[in-house]
């Protein structure tokens, strides 16, 4: 897949082109790492500023961080359950924050101003590698959560409530990461493409509501990914009676 066969006067649209960095035998997508480092840096800067001087009466950035913390705690607690949510809250929270800053960073930062020799900067989550990496981490986490909490009894889950469920549950282990990764990847890439195509067709006014819609989708996708990850972990650690 290459760039669309148009001549773009205002925005160039490149799909599936990457800026490759080669280290020996391995190749990585440079644009994904550049944006992700910038966005992670911004996130960490915010966190460091907000936690520098924390008080009982929160001020400024501390308020925002506490709001986020509370939001993530509620998410983890409702999905994973009171007993083990504390162990998984950092992971769920990191997923949420990383996906959120990636999606919003991709939508809000005018990356197009930076010319790359190949490919273009954008949301790191618009790259299938990122989303698959996140989804596989979620798969590993819920296996680990189930096994560490219940030992081999975790596999009772596969025959619960009846052994007929076994094949479906096994298939689920494959569909879970697949759906997680493709949902996120598809939504974010589609959002970027829609905005780019609209900007190409009607460069004024019309893309703006779509951009807002994109911000909305981005936030929702981060929430969905984190919620589902927490739900899968909760499902794995849940005690059947």
């Amino acid at each position: 897949m290459g760039s669309l066969p148009f001549v773009f006067p205002f925005a160039e649209l490149e799909v599936g082109q990457h800026l490759y960095w080669q280290f020996g035998n391995i190749r990585i997508h440079g644009q994904v790492f550049m944006t992700s480092w910038l966005l992670i840096g911004a996130l960490l800067a915010l966190v460091v500023i907000g936690t520098k001087k924390m008080e009982r009466d929160p001020k400024g950035v501390q308020n925002l961080l506490e709001f986020l913390w509370d939001y993530i705690r509620d998410l983890a607690r409702t999905q994973i359950g009171e007993k083990v949510y504390r162990d998984w809250m950092p992971f769920i929270g990191t997923l949420f924050l990383f996906i959120f800053v990636s999606n919003w960073g991709g939508a809000l930062v005018p990356w197009k101003l930076i010319e790359l020799p190949s490919g273009e900067l954008g949301a790191p989550t618009a790259d299938i590698n990122t989303t698959v990496a996140l989804a596989l981490l979620v798969s590993l986490s819920y296996f680990y959560a189930g096994l560490s909490n219940k030992g081999l009894r975790y596999f009772e889950y596969y025959v619960h409530p009846t052994p007929i469920m076994l094949p479906f549950k096994i298939v689920e282990d494959f569909t879970k990461p697949l759906s997680l990764s493709f949902r996120l990847f598809g939504n974010i890439l589609a959002d970027e493409l829609v905005v780019a195509v609209l900007v190409f067709l009607v460069p004024l006014v019309l893309p703006v509501p779509v951009m807002f819609l994109g911000l909305f989708t981005s936030a929702i996708q981060a929430l969905i990914f984190a919620t589902l990850a927490a739900y899968y972990i909760g499902e794995a650690v849940e005690e059947h009676h």
Partner: peptide
């Protein structure tokens, strides 16, 4: 760092995947 860029595509899996996973775990 750029060495040849003509290939690729939407579903171009490479070392980005494990590195990103490590990066997220570190994060």
């Amino acid at each position: 760092f750029l060495f040849g860029a003509s290939e690729g595509g939407l579903f171009d899996f490479d070392a980005t995947l494990p590195l990103m996973a490590v990066q997220v775990v570190l994060l």
